[in-house]
Amino acid sequence: MIRFENVTKTYKNSTVALRNVSLDVQKGEFVFLVGPSGSGKTTFIRLLLREELPDRGRIWEAGREIIDLPKWRVPYLRRNIGCVFQDFRLLPNKTVFQNVAFALEVIGRPKSVVDAQVPQVLDLVGLSKKRDNLPSELSGGEQQRVAVARAFVNRPLILLADEPTGNLDPATSQGIMQLLDRINRTGTTVMIATHDAALVDWMRRRVVELDQGVIVRDQARGVYGIDNAAGRSAG
């Protein structure tokens, strides 16, 4: 589903964000991308969204090479990828329903589809009763659930999350993780960049650790720090 092959990305100020990174993620996997700030996690996500292009290497996503993708095809690539951020990125003047519906409307889905899919996904994230509330009337956890609903409403093949629990307390963070886990069970590949050690340890899923732009660990059922008990495996 996701394949990085010898990818190197250097920024203009000659900071090397990723150094010769290769990685394979299969369809339906749940992967944590961990590492300290500046280790290259966000660059990884941005490359997958094609907000950035690598200097070297190739990237495949949903069976398609994305480096040579013409610019006008990028929006179509993004329709296969749902994305959730630390700051939720909700539209403050739209209700919960409208925020989620917006993601379908702007890719030209008819009203009938919007009216059918939005309530379903709001039900999935447990916000059916708050569909007419504005984001400012919701808690942080609820806002992130709306963001997850918006990312998932188009049934993407891949769901990316960049520090999705960075602004949330531990209990709420677990709720979000359970939600992402539920989405993963529908067959969606989930990749989460985080440095929330407790959550990674609690979930026990595949962990890819980045340090200074290099993959230093790739464990099938890993924890945040090095866990000698778990066997090493490359996915």
Partner: peptide, 17 residues
């Protein structure tokens, strides 16, 4: 600008924006 960034994120075409 917020709407535009969300539109780009969810795959609205350039012309749509």
């Amino acid at each position: 600008r917020r709407e535009v960034s969300v539109m780009k994120l969810v795959g609205a075409t350039n012309w749509f924006i």
